[in-house]
Design a protein around this nucleic acid. Sequence first.
DNA 1: TATATTGAGTTGCATTTTGGAACCTGTCAA
DNA 2: TTGACAGGTTCCAAAATGCAACTCAATATA
Lengths: 173, 173
Amino acid sequence: MRWEETSNQVCSVARATSIFGDRWTLIILRQLFLGMRKFSDIQQALGITKHRLADRLGRLTDENIVFKYLYDERYKRYEYRLTEKGVDLYAVILTIGQWGDKWASDNDGPPVEYVHTECKQVAKPKLVCGCCGDDLTPHNLKVRMGPGLKKKHARDELSDQDIKLYSIIASDI
Amino acid sequence: MRWEETSNQVCSVARATSIFGDRWTLIILRQLFLGMRKFSDIQQALGITKHRLADRLGRLTDENIVFKYLYDERYKRYEYRLTEKGVDLYAVILTIGQWGDKWASDNDGPPVEYVHTECKQVAKPKLVCGCCGDDLTPHNLKVRMGPGLKKKHARDELSDQDIKLYSIIASDI
DNA sequence: TATATTGAGTTGCATTTTGGAACCTGTCAA
DNA sequence: TTGACAGGTTCCAAAATGCAACTCAATATA
């Protein structure tokens, strides 16, 4: 399967990774979340080539995840800022960072900490159920078909791959 | 910067994405979370080439995120299962999936749903502070240097890039 | 015994995507 | 007039990926 086709898959993870599942996009976004907004700052901080950075920021702009903001009228300089769609990726960055802290760090501890301004503590982000507030783990979650899959199945729009992809859901995990 | 060098950066997001920040790894992992464990099943379901799948599963095995389990003595057949390190990526997959549901889906609604077995509701995962339980957003979190960064700074082990990378943290966001 | 099948890969080669360096453009400042 | 700087492009080599064909071990079937 080619990369462009990934964005058509009936899977939110596949569609999302078709946007930011490459070598640079997520760390560019992390940089934006840290408050770094200028092309050259990001380029130097990450050691990415201008070429690639221009390409990635262009895609993110096309996807409406970032937008260009004119911050200097005289010099006609632009900076890149996160849209609402982009800001919503904060949870993804935080979750990945936390996994990295736990499983991919050295003995010096986490490079950065996030202080929760409400409780003044270092935030240990955790995922909970939006309904009852209990922790979510692979053990207390059960996957089932959602409306997107059911409707496409009813309309007979699933490809062989999609069927195979989700046939497993019907069975026990 | 080359890809292998990313894994040495003083940033948990960069280190994590150096492991799964490519076109396939995350959706392979999603497939494993759905319960699909056999090489050929994954290969057909995802439309990935055997070549690439063998390579990706090999890396994941090297990283101790999955391990090979002999499920058929007679035929000497192996399947791939998640280790604890792998299972911990569930939060990442869930968070990405949720972003995808919201921002990258069509009008049919989410393809899959996760039912929380404790409260029997469809789980809407959300990220909260581990200390106080309040929601985490970019607006109530403040980034600051963590021990990893401070120690390396004290030992003068930060590269120019690392310094640039985090100089922004000292300033206001 | 000879042939086919299945799962799980390799190998070889063409196509895409990246990385690196040099070059271009518009705007000011000395 | 020259230089610097931000923000790119262009060109080419190197690396990653996609595709098809081949291997190999352990049965099954004829």
